[in-house]
C-alpha cells in the first residue's frame, strides 16, 4: 500500500491540515509516512523533515519502551487501541503529553490520531499524587487500627479478626492450632517499684522476646495491660508444651533496667474434629493460665478441650 502524497487530491491534505488534532501514519518499522500540520506545528519541524524519520525520534525513551512493551504487542494482538498516553519531545526539548488512538492494519502500517493532553495530564498527576497520599494514609491508619502502639504487636481487635480466620481454616483443613495466654508475674510490682516508664520498657522487651521465639505466621498480640496471647497455627499437638516452655524460659532471660521478669503461660489446643470456636480455646487457655498462677507462677499449664 502506498501513501504517496501525489495520489491523494490536494484538498484532502488541506482537510487533514485543518484538523485540530494530529494524524500520523507509520510503516511497519515505525517510520513516519505521513503527518498533518497539527503534528508538524507540535514538533516544530516542517512536514518534509518529519517524513521518513522514526517515531522514536520524537518520543521520550520511556515512551519508546512503552510503545515496544505495551502498545505494539497490544496492536499486534488486537489491531487497535484507544487512549494511550505517551510523552513527545519537541524541537526545543520540551516534553509534551499526548494521547493516541491507534489502528494497525494487516500489512503492519499503523494509523495514529493524537492530541495534546497537557490539562488532562495535570489532573492525572494530581489524581496519582492524591492516590499515593491516600495509600500512605490508609497504611498508617491500618497500622494504628490493628497494632498496639507500645509494643507494635497486634491489638486485641486485630487478633480476634485474624484468629477467627485461622480457626475457620483449621476447621476446614482439619489442622490444629494452639493458643498461649501469657501473663507477666507480679507486673504491678515492677510499675510500683521502678515506675511506669520502666514498666513500659519491660513490656516492649517482652514483646520482642515473644515475637522472636515464634514462627512468622504465628500471631502475637497484646490483649491487656500485661496480658499477651500467642496463636501457634498449624502446630503438632505434641510440640506445644515445649514451645511454650521455650518462650517462658526466654522471657526469664530478658533483663531490662536490671529488672528480671517471669511469665505464666496457659496453653490450650484446638484439635481437628472438635469444631470449637476460637473464643472457646482462648477461654481454656485463660483457665490454664489461672492454674499456672495458682500453682506458683513462672510455669506452663496445658489443657486439651
Amino acid at each position: 500500500m502506498s501513501y504517496d502524497k501525489d495520489k491523494l487530491p490536494e484538498f484532502a491534505y488541506q482537510w487533514f491540515d485543518n484538523f485540530n488534532s494530529g494524524y500520523l501514519v507509520l510503516d511497519p518499522n515505525k517510520n513516519i509516512l505521513f503527518c498533518n500540520r497539527y503534528l508538524s506545528e507540535l514538533i516544530q519541524l516542517p512536514v518534509s523533515d518529519i517524513i521518513d524519520t522514526p517515531i522514536s525520534q520524537y518520543l521520550t525513551k520511556a515512551s519508546s519502551i512503552f510503545i515496544e512493551t505495551y502498545i505494539y504487542p497490544l496492536l499486534l494482538a488486537e489491531q487497535a487501541l484507544e487512549e494511550s498516553q505517551m510523552s513527545w519531545v519537541i524541537a526545543n526539548g520540551d516534553v509534551i503529553p499526548v494521547v493516541a488512538n491507534i489502528r494497525l492494519t494487516e500489512d503492519g502500517t499503523s494509523f495514529w490520531s493524537l492530541y495534546v493532553c497537557t490539562n488532562r495530564d495535570k489532573l492525572h498527576a494530581e489524581l496519582i499524587q492524591t492516590r499515593d497520599q491516600l495509600v500512605e494514609q490508609t497504611k498508617n491508619l491500618y497500622t494504628l487500627a490493628t497494632t498496639d502502639p507500645l509494643t507494635g504487636l497486634l491489638n486485641r481487635r486485630e487478633l480476634l479478626t485474624q484468629a477467627n480466620i485461622i480457626s475457620h481454616q483449621a476447621n476446614r483443613n482439619q489442622s490444629s492450632y494452639a493458643v498461649l495466654a501469657v501473663d507477666v508475674d507480679f507486673f504491678k510490682k515492677v510499675n510500683d517499684t521502678y515506675g511506669h516508664q520502666a514498666g513500659d520498657d519491660v513490656l516492649v522487651a517482652l514483646a520482642q522476646s515473644l515475637t522472636v521465639n515464634v514462627r512468622q505466621n504465628d500471631l502475637v498480640a497484646r490483649v491487656g495491660g500485661e496480658e499477651f496471647l500467642i496463636l501457634l497455627s498449624d502446630i503438632q499437638p505434641n510440640d506445644v508444651f515445649s514451645i511454650a516452655e521455650k518462650i517462658r524460659l526466654n522471657v526469664a532471660a530478658v533483663i531490662v533496667h536490671n529488672i528480671q521478669i517471669t511469665v505464666s503461660i496457659g496453653a490450650a489446643l484446638f484439635v481437628a474434629d472438635t469444631n470449637y470456636a476460637f473464643s472457646h480455646i482462648w477461654t481454656l487457655a485463660d483457665k490454664a493460665l489461672y492454674q499456672s498462677k495458682h500453682n506458683g507462677r513462672n510455669q506452663t499449664t496445658i489443657v486439651t478441650h
Binding site: K61, A62, Y70, Q85, M86, H124, I128
Partner: peptide, 12 residues
C-alpha cells in the same frame, strides 16, 4: 527514563 516509564504506566 525508567522512573518516567513507571509514571507513564500509571497513566496507561
Amino acid at each position: 527514563d525508567l522512573e518516567e516509564l513507571l509514571g507513564l504506566m500509571d497513566k496507561n
